[in-house]
Amino acid sequence: MRFSLLKLSSFSIIISISMALFSDLELAKSASPDYTNLIYKGCAREQFSDPSGLYSQSLSAMFGSLVSQSTKTRFYKTTTGTTSQTTITGLFQCRGDLSNNDCYNCVSRLPVLSGKLCGRAIASRVQLSGCYLLYEVAGFAQISGMEMLFKTCGKKNIAGTGFEERRDTAFGVMQNGVVSGHGFYATTYQAVYVLGQCEGDVGDSDCNGCIKNALEKAQVECGGSSSGQIYLHKCFIAYGYYPNGFHRDPPSSNTYGSSGSSSSSGTTGKTVAIIVGGTAGVGFLVICLLFVKNLMKKKYDDY
Rank of each mutant, 00 (worst) to 15 (best):
Y55P: 00
Q57T: 09
S58I: 01
M62L: 15
G64F: 05
S65Y: 08
S65D: 11
V67S: 02
S68H: 14
S68R: 14
Q69L: 11
S70V: 02
K72Y: 06
R74E: 07
R74V: 07
F75N: 00
Y76N: 02
T80P: 08
G81D: 07
G81L: 05
T82E: 12
T83Y: 11
T83D: 10
Q85N: 15
Q85V: 15
T86N: 04
T87P: 00
G90A: 07
L91Y: 05
Q93Y: 03
R95K: 13
G96H: 06
D97P: 03
S99K: 05
N100K: 06
N101K: 11
D102H: 07
Y104G: 02
V112S: 15
V112I: 12
L113G: 03
K116A: 15
R120A: 14
R120K: 14
R125Q: 09
V126Q: 07
Q127G: 00
G130T: 04
C131Y: 00
Y132H: 05
L133A: 04
L134W: 01
L134R: 02
V137W: 01
A141D: 06
Q142P: 12
E147P: 11
M148L: 12
T152Y: 10
C153M: 05
K156N: 12
N157P: 15
N157M: 14
I158M: 09
G160C: 12
T161D: 12
F163V: 00
